[in-house]
């Protein structure tokens, strides 16, 4: 998309509820990074975007990553840019956090922690769900 398209704001389009579900650990597969890039692109279309982190997806948000040794990009820093893209609805599932011994303090961005039932109803009210 060109800068001009990127710059379109408001527009006439319908706003739908988009949920991006992240269930994979970072680095081991390309899903986490690809999912993040899709979310950043989707931000240009002014939709109602939520990002959800469940299962191994919660590992994407761990703070203190140092990827020099494995020579890949540390895209965990990019989650902190989401706010600037007006993507502020980040949810993690409590069950997934507990199973991995993680708490909110371990994460690089502010999130809303939901229990499984809350996550389920959030998922049920979406217009579009895209999974990574």
């Amino acid at each position: 998309m060109s800068d001009m398209m990127d710059d379109m704001e408001g527009g006439e389009g319908v706003v739908k509820k988009f949920m991006f579900v992240n269930r994979k650990a970072p680095h081991g597969t390309v899903y986490a990074l690809e999912g993040l890039e899709v979310v950043l692109i989707s931000a240009a279309f002014d939709q109602d975007v939520s990002m959800v982190f469940t299962d191994d997806g919660v590992y994407e948000l761990i703070k203190g990553m140092n990827t020099k040794g494995i020579e890949v990009k540390d895209f965990s820093k990019t989650y902190r840019a989401l706010e600037g893209y007006d993507i502020e609805k980040l949810y993690v599932e409590k069950t997934s956090m507990d199973a991995r011994g993680l708490t909110e303090d371990d994460l690089i961005v502010d999130v809303t922690v939901l229990d499984s039932a809350e996550m389920a109803s959030l998922m049920a009210e979406q217009d579009v769900v895209i999974s990574f």
Binding site: P26, Y59, I62, M65, N66, T67, K68, G69, I70, D74
Partner: peptide
């Protein structure tokens, strides 16, 4: 984590190694 218990149970019989750069990359 849940997997930690499995590792700990296996430790008397097996020597467990992990790759440092992969741990660092994942924080």
């Amino acid at each position: 984590g849940e997997a930690a218990a499995k590792i700990q149970a296996a430790m008397p019989d097996l020597q467990i190694y992990a790759l440092g750069p992969d741990l660092e990359a994942r924080g």
